[in-house]
Amino acid sequence: MKKITILLVLLSIQFGFSQSSTAFFTKADSFFKTYVSNGRVNYKTIKKDPSSLEELLKIAANVKVTISDVKTYQAFYINAYNLAVIKGIVDKYPTKSPLDIKGFFDKTTYVLGGKKTTLNDLENKILRKNFPKEARFHFVLVCAGLGCPPIIPSAYKPSTLEDQLQRQTVKALNNPNFIKVKGNKVQLSQIFEWYKVDFTQNGSEVDFVNKFRKEKIPAKAKVSYYSYDWSLNQTK
């Protein structure tokens, strides 16, 4: 009888965690669909009524995900990162750039998945450190600057994550404003400079980019980096 009771408790806890993560993905999807369009966020409207964002972050604080469930873990923290960025901007809105907010990436903390974390730690310790071969994270984590690949009007979900990661990476690396090719020269986003180790695990940066490009860049192209645009990705 005692074993049955323990089993029921464990099952109820697991079911509760599953329910909370399901609710998170559903509500996050609705939130992004409501407040994101054309790669930009309607911070002004969220500021007027932040209740849906606050509710989402309360759910995110209590969601439990395990690293063994890779797609759920990754999808949860990608969405959590993008929501935390929005929260950080909304709290200080109006602002022209996330860099105008002191400690935006490395000091302000959020409780996500039961743990207190900063945006930098979420990106570098929770995602990049645990999945060092997944360079596509850089095309779905949106830092509120226009230099980032655009935020999408939907949530990343475990069942669709692989397709979403691939789609956003292909989209970014075929965008002439993101990868600027002129003859034998190519200008890359500073993302490639800052996170070079992620993009050169199996060759050069050009090799990485060419895996996703329709029109390949010359293998010996001269690589440089253009300045990052930290202007706020707000709706016009």
Score class of each variant (00 low, 15 high):
G183C: 10
F178L: 05
K47L: 02
K115R: 13
Q74G: 03
A155G: 11
V142M: 05
K58Y: 12
S52A: 13
I217Y: 07
E193N: 14
N79S: 12
F105E: 11
L161I: 12
S189V: 05
T169P: 02
Q234H: 06
Q201L: 09
K182I: 08
W230G: 04
D163S: 11
P218N: 09
Y226F: 15
F199D: 05
K180M: 11
I59V: 15
L165P: 03
L53Q: 14
T160Q: 11
N233E: 09
D69R: 12
L53E: 13
W194L: 06
R40E: 13
E123G: 01
G114F: 07
T117H: 08
P98M: 06
Y228V: 07
F199M: 04
Q234P: 01
C148P: 05
K27W: 08
Q168C: 09
V63L: 14
D163E: 15
S189D: 10
T200E: 12
K27H: 14
S227P: 01
D121I: 02
R128H: 06
T117G: 06
E193I: 01
S189M: 09
F104K: 07
R136C: 00
F131A: 03
K92I: 00
K182M: 04
D69M: 06
K115Y: 06
A135G: 00
R213D: 05
V63P: 12
T66K: 14
G88Q: 04
G114L: 07
K3Y: 08
F178M: 05
N38T: 07
S231C: 00
I126G: 02
K211M: 08
D91S: 09
N82F: 03
L99R: 14
T66N: 12
N174K: 04
K185E: 15
E123L: 03
A23Q: 15
K180S: 08
E123P: 09
K185P: 04
T118K: 07
T169R: 00
I78R: 10
G39D: 12
K102E: 13
K115N: 14
N202H: 11
I67R: 13
F208T: 09
T235D: 07
Q168V: 03
K171R: 12
L122Q: 08
N42M: 06
Y226W: 09
I101C: 00
K102R: 10
K211P: 01
L8C: 08
V90D: 00
T95A: 01
Y226S: 10
K182E: 14
G145R: 07
N177W: 01
V170T: 13
Y156W: 10
A60V: 12
A144D: 03
T160E: 12
S154I: 06
L56Y: 09
Q187V: 04
L146R: 12
L146D: 04
